[in-house]
Design a protein around this nucleic acid. Structure first.
Lengths: 217, 217
DNA sequence: TCGTGCCTTTACCAATTGGTAAAAAACATG
DNA sequence: CATGTTTTTTACCAATTGGTAAAGGCACGA
């Protein structure tokens, strides 16, 4: 695959460039995550960034380039928790820790979650290759790892792929459907703690292998 | 609330009107569900419907009206399974049946699911009232029902609100993130059966109360 | 045959879209 | 302060946007 951005080569950006690029990306994250690619406008991004439209096009090669930049950055950070699931660790602990980190990320970075959701809902037109290469590899690798854990009896029998899907679904739901959650469950502080407990219980019950240290003998 | 459309009064639409309105709504469902409200264009809807743009505006009072019509229709059908969860039935059966129906709907109506997802992700700007009134009432009612089931020991202790959220999240995920699922799990026929089994196991394990007819004594 | 009411098209609009050219301003550095 | 470079603004542009006005078509009963 081609890298749109050069991490090994020197980006050598001036102070001003770094500051303004960050402003633009932050504004674009707001706008893209709320309206999707086509629904977002450069004028809106410019206004939100406090810059003029031509000035934005001085820093980025067009609307698409901003979107791609956001998506690239996002993917790397987004997949880190899954990547760090340790084959050497205790299987149930590793999975529960992954779930917990994923849920925490949804709470901390709801805009990123919605940006990603928007792109996927629209059929991933600007991210298809990204998915098929990087994500697919990681997904398959971790599926195999989970399958081996199941085989060794360290986890209850479970379909690894669908397990990962349901983890993503449940955790990201709190970010992507925030508007709905807030209407239906207005007390915010409680919601977060409740979500954590619920998600923890949901997956612990699913994954705990039979006869694994029953709490009520 | 005000009704945009008159269900009690006679809609009295001609053959042609019924046919063309259906065409327009179907085309609009495609476009809105893929691009969100702002990303959708009347020209695109018109082309997909096989009609001219002014002709579309002969049947609907503008882009917003089409969107609202779709959303109204959607909400009614979308909530039916939850509505039909029977207070008199066997709790675990009722919930598992609801989950199964919800998953089936996501498979059968992915466009509707994505239309709804798009609207919520964007902060539900054209559906806030709808959520706060109709949905909230139903949600609270069913939460109370589930809570009473838990109280009677018919279900394992669970937060009803978060339970419903996780049911929505997991089931809708297969529709909303279809593009991702298809990349990561290419064999389609198996995916559907696997999803059903996984979701069933996930929630059955969560909800089955302690000592409820253990399969492996 | 002629209306008449429903449907469709043609020809427009003003506003907004992503994007450009080039001048002007700000900045850095000798 | 003079000079070259980086950044920002001004003034545009063609294409697309949602929407309108008005003229045509079309079926159908009197």
């Amino acid at each position: 695959m081609d890298d749109g951005k050069p991490p090994p080569e020197a980006p050598k950006r001036s102070r001003i460039q770094k500051r303004n690029r960050k402003r633009i990306l932050d504004a674009a994250l707001n706008v893209f995550s709320q309206h999707g690619y086509r629904g977002a406008t450069l004028d809106q991004i410019a206004t939100e960034a406090g810059l003029s439209k031509p000035n934005i096009l001085y820093y980025f090669d067009g609307k698409a380039a901003i979107h791609v930049d956001l998506l690239n950055t996002l993917m790397a950070e987004w997949l880190a928790p899954l990547q760090e699931m340790d084959p050497e660790g205790e299987p149930l602990d590793e999975l529960m820790r992954y779930i917990s980190r994923k849920l925490a990320m949804s709470h901390a970075y709801p805009r990123e979650s919605r940006l990603f959701a928007n792109e996927i809902i629209q059929g991933a037109p600007r991210m298809g290759p990204h998915l098929a290469s990087g994500l697919k590899t990681l997904f398959d690798e971790k599926c195999a790892l989970i399958a081996s854990w199941v085989q060794r009896g360290k986890l209850a029998p479970v379909d690894p792929g669908h397990l990962i899907f349901s983890i993503w679904a449940v955790t990201q739901h709190y970010a992507d459907f925030e508007a709905q959650v807030e209407v239906l469950m207005p007390r915010k502080a409680e919601t977060r703690a409740g979500a954590e407990a619920h998600v923890e219980a949901l997956f612990r019950k699913l994954l705990t292998p039979p006869g694994y240290s029953v709490r009520t003998p």
